[in-house]
Design a protein around this nucleic acid. Structure first.
Lengths: 214, 214
DNA sequence: GACCCAATGTCAACAGTGATAACATTAGCA
DNA sequence: TGCTAATGTTATCACTGTTGACATTGGGTC
């Protein structure tokens, strides 16, 4: 079809930033893992085949979304928490773990679909890669927080692998139960996070530390 | 097509127990949530439409699988653990929680695909129903175990809601990380379970209890 | 400015999917 | 024996991801 006349209200042939638009639209879907490329594309007024100009396929698009999710998670972790520095004192060390737990929970609560994608089957390879990278990722913060507890004298011995796994399990599990609507009626995420982290600290042998505000 | 002669090696028109066969075949799939009805049916030498004689559709079949999963989980919980009785002494009370945690982990480890289905999006309604039922389900055992810890004097106060959520979170999270191949290299599930439950006990304020064997 | 090409879009077609309707076969019971 | 409900089949529909052939356009080069 060719047109010699150019109507004003015509849609431009090139979208402009379709790649970003696709990602943004996909991440808003209530169930990301079940999005249809055709729906996604037509929602942006574009043909389904156009998606393949920017992604190798559906799975690749999901993978990119998951990567973005982990970056977003890391960004949340990093506010007021430089994993390369040690905490100044015991309250700060405890506070770091608290903030980490609450950030984890809040992220899961605010973006449950993205969270499911990140920790589901589709992103398995991405998680494996992130764990093997030497660079600091979202996975770096939890071990760093536990190490900080030791350096600040909150726990008597350096954290063992079991301590890291346990801490991560409790926080991750709380998020999973929340996302799965199993523990939905337990109150606000902040409150849940407080309770879980307090018990984690006790579980890994932390001495009581008074913290003014979280 | 009609046949007057009856060859011996012919396939019978009726399968016999197609419903059970479908469930059994589906639960063996490496990724249950992605099974195709047509593949499933043709694998059993049956047409795809035959499935609809036994299930309202794909989603209904998955739901039934999830229900079976929860029943299986409950069966594992119930070996040597009657949630209506209180533990005889402190070691037994502690032992109950240990067994619960290890059984949870072992189930997730042995049937990861089924576990994902059970705690994924597809089975949300089933989980909601199970939580509201007054009857004893797989959800009954964890609160009962914590209550048993109190009645045996292992924890000084009746378990709060936060204790239950925390305990479940830690165990569930460990299973989730295991299924997600995030904590795969941490060793055997029994070892992981031991470590997690020990720290859980400490986290909810349990006094040290000597247990001979788990 | 004219030109070319790579980037980015379209359309048409393919195989595979869940689902449904109409028809075929059979098991079990009166 | 015969009837009926249960259980199977085939054909078809709308939808999906994916690919190949073609269309349009923006940006760099002469």
């Amino acid at each position: 079809m060719k047109k010699s006349s150019k109507p004003i209200d015509t849609v431009p042939y090139h979208h402009g930033d379709l790649r970003r638009a696709l990602l943004e639209a996909a991440v808003k879907a209530p169930d990301i893992e079940q999005i249809s490329l055709r729906e996604l594309a037509s929602g942006l007024g574009v043909s389904a085949a156009a998606v393949y100009r920017h992604f190798d396929g559906r799975e690749a698009l999901l993978a990119e979304l998951a990567v973005g999710g982990f970056e977003q998670l890391q960004a949340r972790f990093s506010v007021g928490f430089d994993p390369r520095t040690l905490p100044a004192d015991a309250p700060q060390a405890v506070q770091r773990l608290h903030r980490l737990g609450v950030a984890y929970l809040r992220f899961a609560d605010e973006q449950p679909a993205l969270w499911r994608l990140m920790f589901g089957t589709h992103a398995a390879q991405i998680r494996a890669d992130a764990l093997q990278t030497g660079e600091p990722t979202s996975y770096s913060y939890l071990p760093a927080a536990l190490q900080g507890l030791y350096s600040a004298g909150v726990i008597p011995a350096p954290p063992e692998a079991g301590d890291v796994l346990f801490t991560w399990s409790a926080i991750h599990g709380a998020a999973a139960l929340r996302v799965g609507s199993v523990a939905a009626a337990q109150g606000e995420v902040e409150y849940i996070g407080e309770g879980v982290v307090q018990r984690i600290l006790r579980g890994i042998g932390a001495r009581p530390v008074a913290t003014n505000s979280i």
